[in-house]
Design a protein around this nucleic acid. Structure first.
Lengths: 225, 225
DNA sequence: TCATAAAATTAGATAAGCCTAATTTTATAA
DNA sequence: TTATAAAATTAGGCTTATCTAATTTTATGA
């Protein structure tokens, strides 16, 4: 049995690659089966199966010392999936008029559409957007990923003013909460006080009255500071 | 075990529904497992499995006398899949600049994207098109299907002039042949002569020199006569 | 360092969608 | 009307992606 290096990935394989890429980016911890299992909501047994498969396809390397790592090919593939996802999100919001909190789920399906020229055509049609509606940078066709924002609202010092640049959590629960608070990409926020007891943040949104949000909330807002 | 009347269909189920709908439209014969098997390229055994499943879901009725028939619900679902397919085809051609012969395959994937409001949003975004790029009518949101063209080039009497209104075959082989002959939707064609030996057609395309095409070709061109 | 908890892995099942091969049913034509 | 061909069905398997339950390995903390 030969190894099919360039074999097309299934949707499921793509979802695993994407998850591994995200986990590798977002924390400094190594990526473990448990982490993937939690991220995807699959059993650990399923994850182990898939890791074996992706290893055979040479899309990941896995040794317990370093955890799960994407190979060069695996990373390239993951980035292009994310490119497709983010381009479709722009399309859904800008062209079809969906709300912020609705687009993620639909883009999860659209990102798997298989056609070589589709992402580039869509990119052109959309006017080569730099960021998706959640503020995440859209990888280029060549696989280059523009730097994303990394300073969170919770990182700021008291008194600082900033603008919302991106959000980490893209769940509709979180995004609907933001809508309610009238926070979007570009909204100015002042961090008035950090409550040392639990990390809660007292903020002023767009110059309006004080609001208190949780530390978890603050860690999911990326700012341009 | 209860029957899940409104259970979401899988992509595969959707493809069967679509095939059964098409076969039911295009010929006066009853729809048989063999016909479906040929249409989809699956084994007869697989077809029988799926027919059982679709019957359980009350999307089809099957008795050997009448062949396979869509139930009211099955037909409604089939029509809405076709609506999605044709809307995406318009999008791919008009907005993303794909060629005539490339869009069908991609739309086969896009048609399965599951979001209730997507077809209507897309419809609106595209300006409520009446026909897809192959000249097929786009079913309305309420499930009404505008009447499609039914007179073929091969049906015409010698000497008649018509315009191409739609094509039956949407394979890229056929569409590329049309491109080569410079035939598109709206192209005027005169039927000069029918060769009685084999049904070949001598035609003039857009007023130009005579060309001879096969009967099969003529049966795949629908005209506005 | 050693007991226990957590994580990883293996073993064995399941469901969907497909297959081939065998069998049964239905058509067709001599 | 009966032999044969075609179509339909059944039986049994395969693959992918999932699961639970059992086992093994690795960490962790007393």
């Amino acid at each position: 049995m030969q190894v099919q290096l360039n074999a097309m990935q299934t949707q499921t394989e793509e979802n695993y690659l994407k998850a591994i890429y995200r986990l590798g980016q977002e924390n400094t911890q190594k990526v473990t089966p448990k982490g993937i299992s939690d991220a995807l909501g699959n059993s650990a047994a399923s994850v182990v199966d898939m890791l074996r498969k992706l290893t055979e396809k040479q899309l990941i390397d896995y040794d317990k010392g370093k955890g799960v790592r994407l190979t060069a090919q695996g990373e390239k593939n993951a980035v292009l999936i994310i490119r497709r996802h983010r381009l479709w999100e722009v399309f859904l919001l800008q062209k079809l008029g969906y709300e912020w909190d609705q687009i993620h789920v639909i883009a999860e399906e659209l990102e798997h559409i298989k056609d070589d020229s589709l992402p580039d055509r869509l990119d052109k049609f959309l006017g080569f957007p730099e960021y998706d509606p959640h503020g995440d940078p859209i990888p280029k066709a060549n696989g280059k990923v523009p730097k994303s924002y990394s300073v969170t609202l919770a990182n700021l010092k008291e008194g600082k003013v900033c603008r919302v640049a991106a959000v980490r959590d893209t769940s509709s629960t979180f995004l609907q909460y933001l809508l309610k608070l009238e926070i979007g990409i570009g909204t100015p926020i002042q961090l008035i006080e950090k409550i040392s007891f639990d990390g809660s943040l007292v903020i002023s949104i767009g110059g309006k009255d004080k609001t208190t949000v949780s530390q978890k909330f603050g860690e999911n807002i990326l700012v341009d500071a």
